[in-house]
Deep mutational scan, measured.
Amino acid sequence: MLYVKVKTEDGEELVLEVEGMTEDEIREELAKAGFKIEEIEVYEVEP
């Protein structure tokens, strides 16, 4: 499983499960949803 931890400019932290997306695609999708991203951390969790 691939997850991203996202910190927004307003200090909110989100953890999202993503599969088959690049970091650029993740940033693009979050921007479309109205999030202003300060930091993204991508990590993989073994089942």
Rank of each mutant, 00 (worst) to 15 (best):
V18Q: 00
G20C: 07
T22V: 02
E23Y: 13
M1K: 15
V45Y: 10
E13P: 03
K32Y: 04
V6Y: 06
I37A: 09
E41Q: 09
L16S: 01
V18A: 03
F35D: 00
E29P: 01
P47M: 10
K36I: 09
E41L: 12
D24P: 06
Y43N: 03
V4F: 05
P47E: 07
G11S: 02
V6P: 00
D24N: 08
E41C: 13
L2S: 11
E29G: 06
D24M: 10
V45E: 06
E25D: 05
E44S: 09
E17V: 15
V4Y: 05
E19A: 11
E46M: 13
L30V: 03
V4R: 00
G20Q: 04
A31C: 09
A33D: 03
A31R: 12
M21C: 14
A33H: 13
L16E: 00
E9F: 11
E39R: 06
E41P: 02
G34C: 06
I26N: 00
V45L: 09
E13T: 12
E25R: 05
D24I: 08
P47I: 09
E9W: 11
E29R: 11
E12W: 14
L16P: 00
A31M: 12
R27F: 07
I26F: 03
D10A: 09
E28M: 12
L2A: 06
V6W: 05
E23M: 15
E9Y: 08
Y3T: 15
F35G: 01
V4E: 01
K32S: 05
E25W: 04
T22C: 06
E46F: 14
V15P: 00
T8V: 04
K32I: 04
E13D: 06
E41V: 11
L14A: 03
V15C: 15
G11Y: 02
E19W: 15
K36W: 05
E17I: 15
G11R: 01
A31I: 12
E12H: 11
L2T: 07
L14Q: 03
E39K: 07
Y3W: 13
A33T: 04
L2G: 06
E12K: 14
V15M: 09
M21R: 10
V6E: 00
K5I: 11
L16Q: 01
A31L: 12
E12F: 13
I37H: 07
G20N: 08
E9V: 12
E25L: 05
G34V: 01
T8P: 02
T8A: 05
I37W: 12
G34L: 02
I37E: 06
E23A: 12
K32W: 04
V42A: 04
L2F: 14
Y3L: 15
G20E: 03
E38I: 15
L2D: 04
E46L: 13
E17C: 15
E44N: 09
V4W: 05
D10E: 08
D10T: 09
L14T: 03
M1T: 13
K5N: 02
E44A: 09
T22I: 03
M1I: 13
K5M: 05
E13V: 14
T8I: 05
V42M: 09
V6I: 13
E19T: 15
E19I: 13
K7P: 03
M21L: 10
K36D: 07
K36G: 05
Y43P: 02
A31V: 13
K5Y: 10
E44I: 12
E44H: 12
V15D: 03
A31W: 06
K5Q: 03
E29D: 05
V4C: 05
I37Y: 11
E19F: 15
I26Q: 00
G20A: 05
T8S: 06
K7M: 13
G11D: 02
E12A: 11
K32T: 04
G11W: 01
L2P: 01
E25H: 04
A31N: 05
V4M: 02
T22R: 05
I40L: 07
M21T: 06
P47K: 08
K7H: 09
L16D: 00
R27L: 10
E17P: 07
I40Y: 08
V45Q: 10
M1W: 11
L2M: 12
G20F: 08
E13G: 03
D24E: 13
I40K: 01
K36Y: 06
L2E: 03
D24V: 09
K7Q: 06
E44R: 08
E28L: 09
M1C: 13
V4T: 00
V15I: 13
V15N: 05
F35R: 01
T22S: 09
I40R: 01
T8R: 05
E41S: 08
D10I: 04
V42G: 04
A33M: 14
Y43I: 10
L16T: 01
P47A: 08
L2V: 08
I26L: 06
D24A: 13
F35N: 01
E44K: 07
V42P: 03
V18P: 00
E9C: 14
L14M: 09
V6M: 05
V42Q: 03
A33E: 05
V45G: 08
E9H: 10
Y3D: 03
L30K: 00
E39H: 10
